[in-house]
Write a protein that binds this DNA or RNA. Sequence first.
DNA 1: ATCAGCACCTGTTGGC
DNA 2: TGCCAACAGGTGCTGA
Length: 267
Amino acid sequence: MPELPEVETVRRTLRDRVVGRRIESVRVRERRLRVPVEADFDRRLTGATILDLRRVGKYLLFDLDDGAVWLVHLGMTGCLATTAAGLERHNHVAVDLSGGTTMVYNDPRRFGLMRVVRGPAPELAALGVDPLSPEFSPESLRGMARDRRRPIKNLLMDQRCIAGLGNIYASEILFRAGVRPGRRAGGLRRLELAAVHAATRVVLEEAIRLGGSSISDYRDGEGRSGHFQMHFNVYARDGEPCRRCDARIRARVLCGRSTFYCPTCQG
DNA sequence: ATCAGCACCTGTTGGC
DNA sequence: TGCCAACAGGTGCTGA
């Protein structure tokens, strides 16, 4: 589900409603996420005040006043929202905040994770550059691609290189850049990599502007759907006409993931 | 270095 | 209508 634009949308919709609030109580109903919720999770969160809500790659980071950080990854189907719509199926964790707000974590497939860390978190240390940060530049992308035989789409989705892109936006970015997903990263010309870099920024910013993509169950911090799925040029459009040239969009499997591209727009 | 295959889960969809 | 297989936004492991 959530790639960078969705996580960023959750962050923006949640931020004003949680920052400055004290965590009154924590209720964990299901600890079996991809990484099990630790036994002392509730205790370590309770009583702390949320100072800020940040995003790094696809992770949400709640900065707490005791110096710890509450780290959340939404996995494939995770939702974190303040609209407490009662006792719903797959509501695994509920966090009661001062002022009467309750934040609920819902995740049908349980591929997400959350834990409280103090000091550097190993899962963050391994992440590459955030594609919206200044460190992501045509030069840094060229450095990542140099001498690499792996497909450019695979490189874009590698969180150790660029943190935040997933299967939807990798396909959409490469369409916008006019580059075939299966091209060897190291074989791309300087101009093509510059196009991939520029397309990354454009696609992500547009997706964030539209509140992310809701295919089935993604919702923002207030329970609302995103709209970028209406603007997909290639993702899940195999067999349909390209919006630019009318050729049929094709699908193939690349590194185990469905990949979509236009055979004429992407040389 | 790189990738296929599999694993972790539940829910939805499409074919028969 | 039911049954079953395939597939879904992510990540991480194994083995080749």
